[in-house]
């Protein structure tokens, strides 16, 4: 609307008529605009209802409270559940199920574990290339696979390129209820040569624990003794895709759940690969799954240069095994060095 004039000017009849005409058309114009805007919004609302797109969780909750008990219907419950789901899940994932929104949601928690709970000290991050296919090979330990997300946080936060690491998850974890969707949403992929090659060919960073279940579930007395590195599958993948191998040593994860004895027969009917008895689990129930706050270190080692080998070298089992053993030795040496310098499990 036109502003009211502070000083009443002297007006001729003609100028007043022109002014009112102008005001009228402006008002009409504004009304027209408003009407169009309302129509647009209504169309948007109808489209949203038509697609049954959930709105924000707060909106849905407010609606439910406003409607009271009588307002509870299937539709409302469904919309509320959908709003709650999409509050922390994306609507689209990649073909491995990686959900960026979910990963962002749980990131503060992982960061807390990284910087406060385990006070992870990371060295050698500059050895990880900023681009191109890269294979981070690490030792596996800790009963529950916490080392995977911690390596992920390290690369995400300490590396200048903020690289996202796709972890190769063991079948046993990738197939367990609850853990399976959790892993795939946070970017892990089932450990499978085909999957790894596919990701590496896109030039991404892949993390792998070649020890597998022998590493993560090893008894406490064997801590920091690397188990056999599978059948060297990771070397074959790296040779095929031309990926750089970064041998990585994780120290501190062995003591988060000291695996004092195994009672595998309890876990077997539930599809669990092993059932550890630790000082706290299963005696304290769910509290027993809280890991001990040890002091961790993650050391990224000298990259293994595979560029002098042709792609066909992947079919040479002797060479593959030699390279695999070389990586294992390098990680073992790095771990032994760390352990020799370590004064305390809790303070490093």
């Amino acid at each position: 609307m036109t502003a009211t004039p502070r000083v009443l000017p002297f007006e001729t009849k003609a100028s007043r008529a022109a002014r009112t005409r102008r005001a009228k058309t402006a008002a009409a114009q504004e009304k027209e605009d408003l009407k169009r805007r309302v129509e647009e919004l209504e169309a948007k609302l109808r489209a949203a209802q038509g697609r049954r797109m959930p709105e924000g969780l707060a909106i849905e909750l407010t609606r439910l409270f406003a409607a009271g008990l009588s307002g509870i219907s299937w539709d409302r419950v469904a919309r509320l559940l959908a709003a709650a789901h999409f509050a922390w899940h994306s609507e689209e994932t990649d073909e491995f199920g990686y959900d960026p929104k979910f990963t962002e949601t749980i990131r503060p928690f992982l960061e807390f574990m990284y910087s406060v709970w385990w006070r992870v000290e990371t060295t050698g991050i500059e050895r990880v290339p900023s681009t191109g296919p890269t294979l981070v090979v690490a030792n596996h330990s800790g009963v529950l696979p916490w080392d995977g997300p911690m390596i992920n946080v390290a690369l995400r936060h300490e590396h200048p390129a903020r690289r996202h690491c796709r972890m190769l998850a063991l079948d046993m974890f990738a197939l367990l209820p609850f853990l399976a969707p959790l892993l795939s949403r946070s970017g892990a992929i089932r450990a499978n040569p085909e999957n790894a090659v596919r990701i590496l060919e896109r030039g991404e960073l892949v993390g792998v624990f070649p020890e597998g279940v022998k590493g993560v579930g090893k008894p406490f007395k064997n801590r920091y003794k690397l188990a056999r590195f599978g059948r060297g599958g990771f070397v074959r993948i790296a040779l095929k895709t031309g990926a750089t191998i970064i041998p990585t040593a994780v120290v501190g994860a062995e003591e988060i759940h000291p695996n004092l004895a195994q009672a595998d027969f309890i876990g077997r009917p539930f599809g669990l690969p092993y059932f550890p008895l630790t000082p706290t689990f299963p005696w304290l129930g769910l509290l027993g799954t809280i890991p001990f706050p040890t002091k961790w270190s993650i050391d990224f080692g000298e990259p293994l240069d595979l560029s002098r080998y042709p792609k066909e070298a992947a079919d040479d089992p002797i060479l593959v095994n030699r390279l695999s053993e070389q990586v294992r030795q390098q990680i073992q040496t790095a771990i032994d060095g760390r352990l020799a310098r370590r004064r305390s499990i809790w303070f490093g």
Partner: peptide, 16 residues
């Protein structure tokens, strides 16, 4: 593209 079961259920206004 792919779709997870939970996404499909919630997008279509069902209750899992």
């Amino acid at each position: 593209g792919v779709l997870s079961l939970s996404t499909a259920i919630h997008l279509s206004g069902k209750v899992p």
